[in-house]
């Protein structure tokens, strides 16, 4: 479904991605794990066209999207719940959701709202509130829900559990599995490597801009290097 080939990205003089390749098959949950600064978020930014790679290519649903503008890429069926939530604090919860379905019809937007409210009932209680007044966890949910509003084929989730209370973390992971079962493909960035790999069909481990390890979620969970580096085992 999505294939990234040999991506090289430079930020000024810094070589941020050093030839990353990855593939996401239809219907899968794929996790990217790695320390801060390993380049996970940069991979996201390249996929949605916010950063143009110096070389390499991204293919999505059979077409190359490397040089397309961000809004065109999103319109092809990718959605993002970005790092740091990036919700519109000056708009209401409902307006945030409606913007998520910007390129959909009014009816699609309405049914999308019903769908995400069924996944995150708490947002329904808050729908008329300004998004900036939500708690951190609720804002995280809103960012996630907003990404689902366009009924994307592929959702990129950047740290969806960051800063959430344990109960909320469970809720978010439950939601990820639920929408995946309903047919949405997911690319997940997570600090919480155990949780991320437990639900992932496939995973990539990034270190300083390169893929150092890849395999099924189970394989990576068992891998000694992963356990040492990311699961805190000695």
């Amino acid at each position: 479904m999505l294939r990234a080939e040999d991506l090289h990205v430079y930020y000024g003089g810094i070589h941020a991605l050093k030839g990353i390749s990855l593939r996401i098959d239809l219907g899968r949950i794929v996790s990217l794990i790695g320390a801060n600064g390993a380049g996970k978020t940069t991979v996201f930014r390249v996929i949605v066209g916010l950063v143009k790679p110096r070389s390499g290519a991204v293919h999505f649903m059979g077409g190359e999207i490397t040089r397309l503008s961000t809004h065109t890429i999103i319109q092809r069926g990718i959605a993002v719940s970005p790092e740091g939530r990036r919700i519109f604090g000056n708009l209401t919860v409902m307006e945030n959701l409606e913007l998520g379905a910007y390129n959909r019809t009014f009816a699609e937007s309405k049914s999308g709202v019903e769908w995400v409210f069924s996944i995150f009932p708490r947002l329904s209680e808050r729908q008329a509130q300004l998004a900036g007044t939500l708690s951190g966890g609720e804002q995280q949910m809103l960012a996630f829900a907003r990404a689902l509003m366009s009924r994307p084929k592929l959702v990129l989730l950047d740290e969806p559990s960051l800063g959430l209370a344990p109960l909320m973390v469970q809720e978010v992971f439950r939601a990820i599995e639920q929408i995946n079962r309903e047919g949405t493909t997911i690319l997940l960035i997570e600090q919480n490597a155990v949780a991320a790999l437990s639900i992932a069909h496939y995973g990539y481990v990034l270190e300083t801009g390169a893929v150092v390890l890849e395999g099924t979620g189970m394989e990576l969970l068992k891998d000694e290097r992963v356990r040492k580096a990311y699961l805190g085992e000695e």
Binding site: V48, I74, P82, R86, F88, N90, S150
Partner: peptide, 13 residues
Amino acid sequence: SRDFEATRLMGID
């Protein structure tokens, strides 16, 4: 007016 990049991520030109 609040966030250019997030606006583009909504598929907005």
